[in-house]
Design a protein around this nucleic acid. Structure first.
Length: 729
RNA sequence: GCUGCUGUAGCUCAGUGGUAGAGCGCCUCCUUGGUAAGGAGGAGGUCGUGGGUUCAAUCCCCACCAGCAGCUCCA
């Protein structure tokens, strides 16, 4: 006997071995028909699962339950795989899991699928759905299953099987086993192919097998499926809406920024309107930084290579840096010699030996030091370092910290001065790989709102807490209230970290305590620390549900060590300070890009590049409109004047499309009584106001950062992606 | 960096083996209009770059560059 406990608490009894679907049917035939899967004691299973003795808790899952939909998506992946295999019989299936908002299937196929193929695949899927064949699960002992897979000569499935756990492997056949399409798969699945919902094949893209860039590239076919046609349409519509707020599109339309291939990939040109937004953000932050005891500094965009050798950034991150600048061939040679001297066992290539032979005619000293490698390594390094002090290459700075450290070391520091908090909107350059560059969110040149706090170990907890508090200040300033904190901790088993256990323990504790004290929603992730210290990242959720990583706070015992930083303590002896690296916005480029999408281009008044557009109704009111515009500007509002010969409707339309918060319509009527007629970009007409009242209201709204932009309602899909949430295939 | 797709006017996009079009924008003129597009005329393109095939290439082929989607990566 099986005692089945239903969600409402009632218990029904069935004979041992009863199928889930039979239990449901006994309750309600309709429920049995609607269910796509079920949950037994918290585990999602399919309807054909047999229940054996004891007591279980059972919940039916319909396709509109999240977990039911998940199962349906997994099944849809199988149906799509079957369709593809029918259309292209030499397809090798690899892996096909459900993901957020849909599913995908990785395939190995010589034919490159195109969007035209999608329709054929969908048509074939529709037939399979119509046939409504059952998903039949059958199991085999592992060795028998392996023989079967060997016979099918699909190395990917064999690989999947080798990775699977357990003594038996399960297969799913859509229809009678042996006579129908089948696939190695853990399941569970919907009862039959007719139950996968309203689907669409959406796109195809490359994906590495097991996500390993050294492995072969497969085709990943993405599809989506929803409980019904309406939900599918809503989803597709939402994707369109998300596209509309794409910062690249809005940046173009609103004249915020541009990218010129002639300037370079991933290098942002801030147009006046975009620059205004950035300027406002920077000013707001500067004011706060000064209030909190930060000191603002400026440092150059480049620095000597030796600076970055000392910091460890060069050549360690060479792959993601622009190539070094060398003033002379000798400087280039010195750098190469330094690299060779530093890396035991590295051999110079014949071409290099030739280069050195050629140039060595003019630089006999280098030849002596570098080739042949007669001198001991330490000696060679010492001599090269001495030359480098005279002649060296330069690097576009990948980070600001080495420069800030030089400011720290430029004077003797007393414990009385600490903490020293140096802040800079510092431009840095990182050579992102070509495929990574994307709009403003992933660029090769960007401005960090960077700061470095140099403090005593005792001050560290307070300083971290201060950084956390400042981060919250910034997020609040923008109105990004939905965020969490990720604490990146050291993986005790990994060797990649430097520094003493005691330092790590202290730093991690300080981070934890600060986050806890601020009562932040946080998660800890082991192995996510920087190699020199633990960190916390602020992850915000924008108004359509996407997550973005913004600021970060990192504790660093490493650079103070490498640069030999000191301060004189109370005991009149030298001590080593601790550094905290932190950014709040992250990068100005990325942050503004995120804001564009978050606000869908409708910036709140205080941030809007153009706050007011004054539109004259006719030429008769043009002079008055100019007066109004001038008054607005005097009051500090970023104002545009439209005295063109267009009709008022066209002027309003054009300002509305530029998403200007307030449109002031002024005609003869307003002129007579010194008024302005206020209209918003949302189309609301506030009517006539005295100009002074309007200006006062704007001043208040700006000062309070009043949220004038209602977030669009409804929930949008998370970023299109492939977070695998269920094993399958 | 990898796989696939794309590259035509400032923007969004049609189009053809015989050197090109629309809408919006821009300029000029007319219009002086009261809350999301008034009318007319005009200017503007080496069809991403470089090779190749061809009598002839914007179109077909190759390479490169750039963009897009995804994968991988992000001190």
């Amino acid at each position: 006997m099986v005692k089945v406990q239903l969600p409402d608490g009632t218990v029904v009894e069935h004979p041992d071995g009863v199928r889930v679907v039979d239990v449901l049917r006994a309750l309600s035939p309709r429920l049995a028909d609607q269910a796509v899967a079920a949950k037994v004691d918290g585990q999602v299973v399919e309807l054909s699962t047999r229940l054996t003795d004891g007591q279980v808790k059972l919940t039916a899952l319909k396709i509109d339950d999240p977990e039911g939909l998940h199962v349906a998506r997994h099944s849809a992946a199988h149906v799509m795989a079957e369709a593809i295999c029918q259309l292209w019989p030499n397809t090798k299936l690899v892996y096909g899991p459900p993901v957020d908002n849909g599913f995908y299937y990785d395939i190995d196929l010589d034919h490159s699928l195109t969007p035209e193929d999608f329709e054929r695949i969908e048509a074939r899927m529709a037939e399979i759905v119509k046939e409504n064949r059952p998903f039949v699960r059958y199991e085999m002992p592992r060795d028998e299953a392996m023989r079967k897979l060997e016979a099918e000569r699909n190395e990917y499935k064999i690989d999947n099987a080798l990775r699977a756990e357990g003594d038996t492997l399960s297969f799913y056949s859509t229809g009678e086993p042996g006579k129908s399409f089948e696939d190695l798969c853990r399941g569970p699945h919907v009862p039959s192919t007719g139950r996968i919902g309203a689907f669409k094949v959406r796109q195809v893209a490359g994906a590495y097998h097991h996500g390993d860039a050294t492995k072969q590239m497969l085709q990943r076919v993405y599809g989506t499926t929803w409980p019904n046609k309406k939900a599918l349409q809503e989803y597709l519509h939402m994707m369109e809406e998300a596209k509309k707020r794409d910062h690249r599109k809005l940046g173009q339309e609103l004249g915020l920024f541009t990218i010129s291939p002639l300037v370079g990939t991933g290098l942002i040109l801030w147009k006046p309107h975009g620059a205004t937004i950035r300027h406002v953000l920077e000013e707001e932050l500067r004011k706060e930084l000064i209030a909190r005891g930060y000191q603002l500094v400026y440092t150059p965009h480049i620095g000597r290579l030796d600076l970055y050798r000392t910091s460890g950034h060069f050549p360690y991150y060479r792959e993601s840096q622009y190539p070094p600048l060398f003033e002379s061939e000798r400087a280039r040679m010195l750098n190469r010699l330094w690299e060779l001297a530093g890396e035991a066992g590295e051999q110079a290539s014949p071409a290099e030996i030739e280069l050195f032979s050629d140039v060595a005619a003019e630089h006999e000293d280098l030849r002596q030091a570098g080739y042949p490698k007669s001198a001991p390594r330490e000696e060679r390094q010492r001599r090269i370092r001495a030359w480098l002090a005279v002649e060296d290459g330069y690097l576009l700075k990948p980070m600001n910290c080495p420069h800030h450290i030089q400011i720290y070391t430029s004077e003797a520091r007393s414990y009385r001065q600490l903490p020293v908090k140096l802040a800079e909107f510092g431009q840095v350059y990182r050579y992102e790989k070509s495929g990574e560059v994307n709009g403003m969110t992933r660029v090769r040149g960007f401005c960090q709102d960077d700061a470095h706090v140099f403090c005593t170990p005792q001050q560290l907890p307070d300083e971290i807490a201060e950084c956390v508090d400042l981060s919250q200040f910034v997020l609040k300033m923008i109105g990004l209230t939905d965020y969490r904190v990720r604490i990146g901790l050291r993986d005790p088993d990994s060797k990649k970290y430097i520094g003493s256990d005691e330092n790590w323990r202290m730093a991690q504790e300080a981070l934890r305590r600060s986050v806890a004290a601020a009562a932040l929603n946080s998660s800890e992730e082991v192995g996510e620390a920087a190699f020199y210290g633990p960190k916390i990242d602020f992850v915000v959720r924008d108004c359509i549900g996407r997550e973005w990583q913004l600021g970060t706070v990192q504790v660093d015992y490493n650079l103070p060590e490498r640069f030999g930083l000191t301060y004189i303590g109370e005991d009149n002896s030298e001590h080593r300070p601790v550094m905290v690296h932190r950014t709040l916005f992250g990068s100005m480029e990325r942050f503004v890009g995120i804001l564009i999408e978050h606000f869908a281009g409708k910036f709140p008044l205080w941030l809007a590049p153009v706050q007011v557009t004054v539109c004259s109704v006719s030429e008769k009111s043009a002079a008055y409109a100019a007066e109004v515009a001038a008054a607005c500007r005097t009051a500090g509002l970023r104002t545009e004047l439209d005295n063109s010969s267009e009709r008022i409707g066209a002027k309003i339309r054009s300002a509305t499309m530029m998403k200007v918060p307030y449109i002031l319509v002024v005609g003869e009527q307003e002129m007579r009584n010194g008024a302005v007629n206020v209209r918003t970009r949302e189309g609301q007409q506030y009517g006539s106001f005295r100009l002074s009242d309007f200006l006062a209201a704007c001043a208040t709204e700006i000062a309070t950062h009043g949220e004038k932009t209602p977030a669009p309602g409804g929930q949008a899909p998370a970023v299109e992606g492939a977070s695998v949430t269920h094993a399958g295939g």
